[in-house]
Design a protein around this nucleic acid. Structure first.
Lengths: 111, 111
DNA sequence: TCTACATATGTTGACCTTCTACACATCTTG
DNA sequence: CAAGATGTGTAGAAGGTCAACATATGTAGA
């Protein structure tokens, strides 16, 4: 396994979480797994980033949480997107495209 | 002017600066102007971000600086890319593409 | 049986980057 | 004469991510 040092672009984590939750209710651990799978192992969310982010998003009213039981029969907190969260996700996606596009412009710039 | 709240993706600034300097020697103020122009006003580097970044990059040996005179006849510090800086830029560009690609995968993910 | 790993949530403190706001200096334009 | 562009820089606050730790259970393999 190549040593992956991927400081997950700051500010991007929230958007990724909102996007995963938008696909359907999931618990925290599942979110980190799905991000890793979908991104083909490139993006790996650490617990020390994940849980603070989830609490942050919940406080801001973008996510709602309920305790339930995971596939494996363990207690897990399931998150779902609120209406505000949906709007926020749309905003952040637009913003990401603008920023990523702008960065691309600079990288492709030739004298 | 639309209120642009663009927290320049963290960690990206260094790469952008290296890229601009790679196009030829420039002074700090000029770097911020070029980034803004090339990105079509989307990316705007604040002085409070710019100068600390330049000092950081110089300390790490990625940039070299010399005092000179600007177009307008003012004293300005001109930066150029070192060999180490060139390698670093290549690394960061690869990394950016990997990350941006991975984020794209997640954003395009459908259930 | 014992060990390691996967599953699951959470906190702490350090580290780094960016931002706002300030300070200074000069030249040009209205 | 005032404002804005040009040019460099610092201080302190704010915020996010990380490594490391703590806890708990189930399961697979040696």
């Amino acid at each position: 396994m190549p040593i992956e040092r991927s400081d997950l672009l700051q500010g991007t984590l929230d958007m990724l979480i909102l996007k995963i939750v938008a696909l359907g209710p999931v618990h925290g651990y599942g979110i980190s797994q799905r991000i890793r799978q979908i991104s083909k192992e490139v993006l790996q969310v650490q617990q020390g980033s994940l849980y603070p982010a989830l609490h942050r998003l919940e406080k801001r009213g973008w996510l709602e949480a309920d305790w339930g039981e995971s596939d494996k029969g363990r207690p897990a907190k399931f998150y779902k997107l609120s209406a505000k969260g949906r709007k926020q996700l749309a905003t952040e996606q637009l913003n990401w495209r603008r920023l990523a596009g702008a960065v691309g412009l600079v990288l492709r710039a030739a004298e």
